[in-house]
Write a protein that binds this DNA or RNA. Sequence first.
DNA 1: AAAAGACCTTAACCTATGTTAAGCGCATTA
DNA 2: TAATGCGCTTAACATAGGTTAAGGTCTTTT
Lengths: 246, 246
Amino acid sequence: MIANALTGKLSLLVDLEKSEKEILDGFCQENGFLLKGQSLTSYDTDCDEVVLLLEGWACRYKILNDGRRQITSFILPGDLSGVRACLFGVSDYETEALTDCKIARINGSDIVNLYIEHPRLAAAITWGSAREEAMLTERVVSLGRRNAKERIAHLFLELHWRLEAVGVTERMAYELPITQEMIADCLGLSIVHVNRTLQSMRKDKLLEYRNGYVILHDSKKLKRLCSFDSEHLEGELHPEFENLSE
Amino acid sequence: MIANALTGKLSLLVDLEKSEKEILDGFCQENGFLLKGQSLTSYDTDCDEVVLLLEGWACRYKILNDGRRQITSFILPGDLSGVRACLFGVSDYETEALTDCKIARINGSDIVNLYIEHPRLAAAITWGSAREEAMLTERVVSLGRRNAKERIAHLFLELHWRLEAVGVTERMAYELPITQEMIADCLGLSIVHVNRTLQSMRKDKLLEYRNGYVILHDSKKLKRLCSFDSEHLEGELHPEFENLSE
DNA sequence: AAAAGACCTTAACCTATGTTAAGCGCATTA
DNA sequence: TAATGCGCTTAACATAGGTTAAGGTCTTTT
């Protein structure tokens, strides 16, 4: 399941042909791993490599002059990291493993070639970037206009939604192997306030987060609370692409 | 100049061939306009249309349940709006003209066809999306970890940088035809606090913003203040694309 | 030329969130 | 089994930024 998180995710979008599946399966071969805390980007500073995360968690972040840190996104199994860096030769953030990870390193030009030889797959990858942009947009909304409780609700719902797509949730619960400090750095809050807010949400029977495990007790209420809307993460390929056989 | 903002922007990235330039010029034909306050997206709810902004300002925003608004990005001359919505059939935000605008409506399938017939142009457009994502990432950093003064510094520097690329700045100054309320909604602040902060920055001889006109008095200090870094907006196409002749 | 409406400005006051600091519990190491 | 360290929790206190409200200056409308 996990080994094909990418294929699985993209199948939601297009009916893949056999030849396309084979290419993707080729990408999904585990050929490396990262220890917790290791950086993904140190490699592709002079980079021509895309990393497909097969198992584990990672994140992207930026650090300001004085050390303040902002996590800009979490990277989950099935996610490609470094596509932009590879297409345009710029990497503007750090990427780090939050847990031990299994990965597949993919040659940058193999990805670029998709754009030339397998436009449908390239489109599917672009769809992945678009999805990321949509999530980034929601993060902007969270940081700009949602309060602490709403931010946490939104993040936890979004993660649940993403993890569902790669099949690693159990009903309304999932493993979240990160510290409260990371949640704080992701949501623009202090670690103390994240703690306070989590407690209060637990008391209100909204959700629980303990020992690296999230339980969403009342997802309906949570969704209303933060104006959560997963539609922005769906989407289907333009018909013009669909008609394209290879 | 303005009429070719798109071509100009993309030329920074690739040496365009004659045939490619012709296609772009085709896209740049003004064929519509919007009055201040008019919405761009009402059209593409069932959307198969991309809008190229030729003149004027627009923005994307989201509104929460209770009316709070967050502007997620500003759209400037030369920017394409709705590429994602068109490729994937989802539009997850509202788009509105902030001033009267001249636009070129482009048929969605004409854009999609680029992906099939002119991969280099498609790549250039993808580059535009990537640039947007980079800006969105910086906005996340601003909202998450920068204080009011730093947020304003960063936004004003970024806008200057973008406007320079389409040639509508005068040295360290430019026209910014939006209200303080919009700046507030973009930076996750209250209108009163934006006002306070602008005053204080003016007193400190950092920058001035009055009558819809921005002057950056001390851009060096401003850049240091907010850890501004325009590199993340640059970038060049992967050589694999460059070698691709048509 | 009066009235209305945007937008900006200022002031007084309020609150969500940050900061500092200390103690706790568990896991790892020695 | 003591010691170290990391992450969680709680409490007391501090502050950046929000809210409300009122007045000012234009511009547009009547």
